[in-house]
Design a protein around this nucleic acid. Structure first.
Lengths: 208, 208
DNA sequence: TCATTTTCGGAGATACTCTCCGTTTTAAGC
DNA sequence: GCTTAAAACGGAGAGTATCTCCGAAAATGA
């Protein structure tokens, strides 16, 4: 049925094949369990002690060696991204709902407001996002910014198409502007500040 | 992390004495020379290699021991602030000029545009500012953010007083919004993006 | 069961920040 | 100029972080 594995292996012995036809071995159960456990522990400790916990400490709390931690997550940013990916995807998912239920500009406003509420509620998210943005190597399938960036870009694009927003407005820029106010800001009225900024951004983006 | 008695005593000792009889010894020439030299070297190396150069390396390049470096500048943020203080003060000084020569809203726009040009031209400034902002201990005479924060706040205050800007607009928020776009953004059209944001912010801040 | 592959986990290489303290230099008084 | 105390120097090193390497152990497929 399949081409003889032995013969093939003789020819391309240990060469990285562009077509990894070799039967993908079932992933080991302990690896999956460890990965999930590390994620759970990291999430808990990030929320409890902030995003600056050392990788060694996380490894210790998870009961694994640092080698194991680093095999699963190449660095702290990768771990942060894995931990907060679910949160960010929830945020991105709201895009669809708002697109279906609200007129264009209102959808943008609603999404930005949700973004503010999210980041204000989980203050730990802002530093994490900041660290993710600093990471320039934004590989195709692991850049969390793309997820929420895509959401706001599509929402703003729809508002531009409807003629209510000027065509030179960039969704990402609006998001980063909001983020600038939310990041590292510990003012008690942070949420109100940010929501006022949402209004300014919306008002300033509209066609004259 | 502990505040030792020695440190406190040192600081208290330098406080203006109620009995200023004690002859204030002339500051040592080598100390002043070293401080200036460290500043010059740090400025050069920050511009050449970015703001993440290690303190030990700066000390070595300046030809002094790490102890000397740390006596003059308690940490990297303090050094960054000393290096960029002149730049920031130039920026803040423009406030007076714009206040005297431009109508309120135009002055705000001009200052924000200058801010964008400044940070875009000296890309190294943005990460430095970011690090300074992260430092929460903003002592009275060493918080660089206060310098430029005061400038924008006064400019926006004047525009509010003139009735052209809504009274709930906060200058600092506008600045941070701009900063959010400028920070860590390496897009080639960064300056244009930021200037479009300036327009959005101005337009969105005006009274209806 | 056996051979192979994958993962584990911790010792440790490397790097960085910052401190301690003995030594050296300087300014001021004599 | 000489003396002396204060001030500054500088480097060893403590403490901590990130990330790697590799022998041991475990799981998978035959």
């Amino acid at each position: 049925m399949n081409i003889s594995g032995e013969d093939l292996r003789l020819q391309v012995h240990r060469m990285p094949s562009p077509f990894p036809k070799t039967a993908p071995r079932k992933p080991r159960a302990d690896a999956a369990k460890n990965r999930a456990h590390i994620l759970a522990v990291a999430k808990e400790v990030f929320y409890r002690k902030g995003g600056e916990v050392s990788m060694d400490e996380i490894a210790k709390l998870a009961g694994v060696g640092p080698g194991t931690l680093y095999r699963h997550f190449a660095n702290r940013t990768a771990l942060l991204e894995a931990v907060y990916r679910i949160e960010l995807e929830k945020l991105a998912a709201a895009e669809r709902e708002f697109t279906e239920t609200l007129p264009p500009v209102e959808a943008v406003r609603a999404w930005m407001t949700l973004f503010v509420d999210y980041l204000a509620a989980k203050q730990i998210l802002a530093p994490a996002l900041s660290e993710m943005m600093a990471q320039e190597s934004c590989s195709v399938y692991s850049c969390a910014m793309d997820v929420i960036g895509g959401a706001i870009t599509r929402l703003v694009g729809r508002a531009i198409a409807s003629g209510e927003v000027r065509p030179d407005v960039n969704g990402m820029d609006l998001l980063w502007a909001l983020f600038g106010v939310l990041n590292g800001n510990t003012a008690p009225d942070l949420r109100e500040k940010a929501k006022r900024l949402v209004e300014i951004l919306i008002l300033g983006s509209r066609t004259a």
